[in-house]
Every structure is written in C-alpha cells, then in structure tokens.
Simulated scan of single mutants.
Amino acid sequence: MQITFNIELSDSDQAALATALGCPPNELQQELFRHALAALHEHVECYLGRRASTRGNDILEYRLALLIGHAFKNKIPSDATVSRLFQTTLTASRTLIRNALAKYRIQLVDASAASAKAVLETATWPGGNGDDYLANNPAANVVDLLNQRLLVEDPTMKRIGRVPESGGVYAINKYSYDKLCGAFNAAKVARP
C-alpha cells in the first residue's frame, strides 16, 4: 500500500529536527520518512490488536525495535542517539536498548549481527607493540553482544573493555578480535 502525505514544518523546526535526528538538513525528508514508516507500523500493529501494550516501557521498547529496523537501517543506535530521540538519560537509554534487544532478539538478530560486524570492521590497529585493536565509541550494548559471543565461542578469550580514562574507546585483544571476526564474518583490519 502506497501512502504519502505532507507535513508543515517551520524552518526552525526543520533545523531542530535535523539536529535531533543527527542528519544534515538536506537529508531530513529521507530521514523522517524512515521514522514515519516505523511509527506507522507501530500504529497498524496496535490497531490490528497485535501490539496493544499498556505499559509505557513496552511501548518504548517496541518503538525502538521498529526504529532499528526502519530508521536506523538495521543497526543498533548509540546510547546518545536514543537519549536525543527519546529524551532520556544515557543510563535510561542503555537500559531501553538492552531491553529491546532482549525482548525482540529474533526480530533484531540481523541488526545485532550487522552492528557487531561494523564495530569489528571499523576498529583500528595502533601498531607497535599494542596487542589490542581499538573501537571508537561503539554502542555499549553492541560491546555487550560481542562479549556474549566471545563467551559462546571461547570463554577463555579476553573480554572487550573500555580503555581506562577514555570517554568511549574500547580495547579488543587481537586474539579475541580474530575469533569475533570469524564468528561475524567480518573483514579483518590488517596488522603489520
């Protein structure tokens, strides 16, 4: 079914929305389309009696699962992105993401795998005597997913952890990195 509509937004509202959605102003229409698609799916499921949640958290978790599939192009958003869109603290956003991933685990399995693979493929190898790859600012819940996978693959592997005194840099041991790249079919960043 094809549905189109127009919405009137002032220039200042458009600028504020572009900031909230983290996109350039010239991409706002396309970005809003994906968010509107997620919202429409949420309403249709409710009207059909498939998703008649009464708890606010259930509604937010389902909404986030739909946004991951539509607006975020099947990738898990960062805690900061969820905070910006849902008007929540970073801690509350991390909990919301974790709960949505747990509750909609089957629906979000591809998003989880794609997000984990993206972290591995964008990690950097500092070279020298460093034994660790570095991942800059991955979503904390994606780090949790990677650590869970390490437990399944080989519980003796070193867990991914935040680099001390960094805001959001995580260290991935080179052996753990190799194991995870194999598990997620990720292209490895070369080591010298």
Results as ranks from 00 to 15, higher is better:
3 I>M: 10
4 T>F: 06
4 T>D: 08
5 F>M: 04
6 N>D: 10
6 N>Q: 12
10 S>E: 08
12 S>C: 07
16 A>H: 09
16 A>L: 11
17 L>I: 08
17 L>C: 13
23 C>M: 08
28 L>M: 14
28 L>W: 15
31 E>F: 00
32 L>C: 13
33 F>W: 07
37 L>V: 14
37 L>D: 14
38 A>Q: 03
41 H>L: 14
44 V>K: 00
45 E>I: 00
46 C>Y: 11
48 L>I: 02
49 G>H: 06
49 G>R: 08
50 R>Y: 13
54 T>V: 13
56 G>L: 15
59 I>H: 15
61 E>R: 15
62 Y>M: 15
65 A>M: 13
69 G>V: 01
71 A>T: 09
71 A>Q: 07
73 K>G: 06
73 K>P: 01
73 K>Q: 11
73 K>I: 03
76 I>E: 01
76 I>W: 01
76 I>R: 02
76 I>Y: 01
81 T>L: 15
84 R>H: 11
87 Q>M: 09
90 L>W: 04
94 R>L: 03
99 N>L: 11
100 A>K: 14
102 A>Q: 10
103 K>A: 12
103 K>T: 12
111 A>H: 09
111 A>D: 11
112 S>Q: 05
113 A>D: 09
117 K>E: 11
118 A>N: 09
119 V>G: 05
119 V>I: 09
120 L>M: 05
121 E>D: 00
123 A>D: 01
134 L>C: 01
136 N>C: 04
137 N>I: 02
138 P>T: 05
139 A>D: 07
139 A>Y: 06
140 A>T: 14
141 N>Y: 08
145 L>K: 10
147 N>L: 06
154 D>G: 07
155 P>F: 00
159 R>A: 05
162 R>K: 14
162 R>N: 08
165 E>D: 13
165 E>H: 12
168 G>K: 05
170 Y>D: 05
171 A>L: 02
174 K>G: 00
174 K>C: 00
175 Y>G: 00
178 D>W: 02
180 L>V: 04
182 G>F: 00
182 G>L: 00
183 A>Q: 01
183 A>M: 00
188 K>W: 06
190 A>K: 05
